[in-house]
Amino acid sequence: MLKLEGIHVYYQESLAVSDVSISVKEGEFVTIIGANGAGKTTIMKAIMGLIRVKKGKIHFEGDDLTNKPPWVRAEMGIGYIPEGRRVFPDLSVVENLKVGAYTIKNKQILNQNLEKVFFLFPRLKEREKQLARSMSGGEQQMLAIGRAMMLNPKLLLIDEISMGLMPILVNTAFASIKKMHEEGVTILLVEQNAKKALATADRGYVLETGRIVLEDRADILNQKDEIKKAYLGG
C-alpha cells in the first residue's frame, strides 16, 4: 500500500533521513521505533508531504506521491496524527473534527464519521462546543485521534501517540488505535515507547540516526537483545 524507496530528506540543510526504504501492506500495523532525533518525525512529514524529499520515491496504492501537495495526499486517504497533538487551539472540538473531514464533500458520510468519533470518545461529544485550547492533554490527544478518524483514512500515520500522556491514557490511546486497526485501517506508527509499540504492531523497523538498521516481525524484535538493551530498558 505504502512504499518508500530510498528516500533522503534534509532538515535545515543537514541530512536527517538517508536512504530509508519502508513498505506497509494493506491491513498491516507497522511501527518505526528509534531514539529521540533519529528521524522518525521527518519520515512521517515526508510521507504526508510537509517536507521535501531530496532523493527517492514515495508510492501510495501505486501512485507516485513524491511531488503531490499534502492536501492531495489527505484526499487520497492518508490520515495524520502529528507529534504533540497540534489540535487547532482556537477552534471548538466539533470544528476541529470538521477540519479533519475537510476533503469529504458528502454531508451524510461526514455526519456518520462524526457520530463514530463521538461514540468512541463520548468525552468529545460532551465538550463539543469547547475550544480545544481549554482541554487537558489527554482530551486533546483524543481530539487529535478523532480528527484523523474523520477522514476515514485508508492509511493512518501516527507520530508519537504516547508523548506527554499519563500511563493510563497511553493505554487508552493505544486501545483506540488498535480498534481502528481491527476495523481495517492500515497503520504506520512511530514511537519512542518501543515496548508498547512492538506489543501492538505486526512488524517493526528500527531507525538509528536517520537509517533503518533492523526490520522484522514485532514479536521477534521484542526478543532481540540489542533492542531490549537500547529501547526496552534492559
Partner: peptide
C-alpha cells in the same frame, strides 16, 4: 492557527 497541520488535514492552503 496552524498552517502545516491545515495542509495535512486536506486544506488547499
Amino acid at each position: 492557527q496552524d498552517l502545516e497541520i491545515a495542509k495535512a488535514m486536506g486544506i488547499n492552503v
